[in-house]
Design a protein around this nucleic acid. Sequence first.
DNA 1: AGAAAATTGGGTATAAATACCTAATGATTG
DNA 2: CAATCATTAGGTATTTATACCCAATTTTCT
Lengths: 210, 210
Amino acid sequence: MEIIGVIIADDHLIFRKGLSIVLNEIPFVKLIAEASDGNELLNILKKRPADIVLMDINMPGMDGIEATKKMKDKYPETEVIALTMHEEIGYFNKMIEAGAKGFLLKKITKDQLEAAIKAVFYGETFFSEEFVLSAKPNKIPTQNKPSIEISEREKEVLKLIAKGYSNQEIAEKLFLSKRTVDGHKARLFEKTGAKNAPNLIMYSLKNGLI
Amino acid sequence: MEIIGVIIADDHLIFRKGLSIVLNEIPFVKLIAEASDGNELLNILKKRPADIVLMDINMPGMDGIEATKKMKDKYPETEVIALTMHEEIGYFNKMIEAGAKGFLLKKITKDQLEAAIKAVFYGETFFSEEFVLSAKPNKIPTQNKPSIEISEREKEVLKLIAKGYSNQEIAEKLFLSKRTVDGHKARLFEKTGAKNAPNLIMYSLKNGLI
DNA sequence: AGAAAATTGGGTATAAATACCTAATGATTG
DNA sequence: CAATCATTAGGTATTTATACCCAATTTTCT
């Protein structure tokens, strides 16, 4: 079997070390380097090509979504397996759109990691079962249904709702009419399918919108 | 310097491995064992005493809060440093009440880990700065202000609010008067200090209430 | 046993949110 | 250049939430 070159991109020292131990126990894997954010990853790739990048989503500096997009732009042969702590469908869709071919929870076992690297290296996809269950199945193979996108303004309004401001207060803070805030909020309801404000907050947190 | 015996209790393989590497690099620390949940930890302690337990909060089977309580009951000499992924103040207070003397984020560096183990072993406390900032300072030294407790009924109502039901709908689901639901909700506002329903959801998720 | 808290419910009033409608402007993009 | 979408904002009506007041019953804890 061929040797598969792997790079870890994760800002979290302890997790990187743990992952490197587990990777070293997989015979067909060679750990090429460790990066602590997206920029470092791109610098490493200039000199040392890799087959697979195990990519954390939440990183300071350049996060996993942006790093994946930029990486796939320059090095389309290098595949990305996303790593995440929780089942956040919002991030899931964004990472898939950015080009990730696999998606793993960080609580994964060695066997699952091994299977994922092998699958993605040989052109397939690999997803932790949590994602297969929570995501709509057709999203995984086709990967063309866009995740819901909320605009910048909507996100601003959303954050202020979460902080407990009324529509009137939000309007004052953003120098808008209360009716405009009503409008943004109504659009948020449409896009998310939420019934009311508490439900909207719940949905947004679950899906990584805020 | 004395050798400090440490046990890791975490359900997450990769994190355990990473932590063990970092611990092995600290000269005065001896890693005694690794446990993947609270029950395993208690079994290990029967045979092998430890000075410090690095305790994850979210574990299947017996979680970190319960494990800390039971452990401190039988082995009051063994100190607990809690490990968590996020800054969840609700868990923070519960762990402190259970007897934890330190609180670290999992994204910690080796130096911080070293300092935390040393501090707690010598009778002090150690908290990641994120907790010092987010928690009320007087909670840390005195540790006697209870975390907010919400009743069962209040939790039921809270969950239904999060799902997007109106007070009237919640009343029907729970076979109560709408006014009763209003009352529970008002008490939730009092206890949490939330300004309104969206804010209440935000607070509850942040603090592990739901 | 007695105190405290939880659970239940009512009245009244105001504030806020939500559901419909419409529409102008500006930016982006095919 | 035309189409689309984001952003802005108004009108009107209804529903809902929240803020005060109060109090009875049950459960829990000391």
